[in-house]
């Protein structure tokens, strides 16, 4: 039987900056705002800490999507970390697309500590998008 794309629950890895997005996700939780449980959160000091290797490893090891989330531009706890992240991952996003890896699988967002609402809405959208992209086939790839 053909697997229905919409039915399968995707796994998403989220790299969240400690100061804004992690607190934002926390706020969503404490405020009892519901959002899909598909995201596995990894807390990092700053979105600027995230290395393209992290994203790559997630995608290659079978994550259906990767999200990097940080403070809004201008609000970085370290003043400029997210500026660097923005440049770095703009390149990665385009390169993934170029290699034929669905670029919906890699997303970035700015979510502040007060934006529990935004966080919940974001994840709902993200899960929908990644469901449309379908399961990540990287684990089926010949690994020998």
């Amino acid at each position: 039987m053909k697997e229905n794309k919409e039915d399968r629950e995707p796994k998403i890895v989220g790299f969240l900056c400690n100061w804004c997005s992690y607190a934002g996700a926390d706020l969503a939780g404490t405020s009892r705002i519901e959002y899909p449980p598909n995201i596995r959160i990894i807390r990092v000091p700053c979105s600027g800490r995230v290395n393209p290797l992290f994203v790559l490893k997630c995608l290659m090891d079978g994550a259906d999507g990767v999200l990097i989330s940080g403070c809004h531009i201008g609000d970085c706890h370290y003043s400029e970390g997210n500026f660097y992240a923005r440049r770095r991952f703009a390149i990665l996003k385009r390169l993934l697309e170029y290699l034929g890896i669905d670029s919906r699988r890699f997303q970035m967002s700015w979510v502040s500590a007060s934006e529990g609402d935004k966080w919940s809405k974001l994840i709902k959208e993200l899960v929908q998008e990644i469901k449309q992209a379908g399961p990540n086939k990287s684990n089926d790839k010949k690994h020998d």
Partner: peptide, 16 residues
């Protein structure tokens, strides 16, 4: 160097 610098107005429309 490109990735050791930034511009305030770098494109960010792809970020949610």
């Amino acid at each position: 160097p490109l990735l050791a610098s930034f511009d305030k107005d770098d494109p960010g429309d792809w970020i949610k």
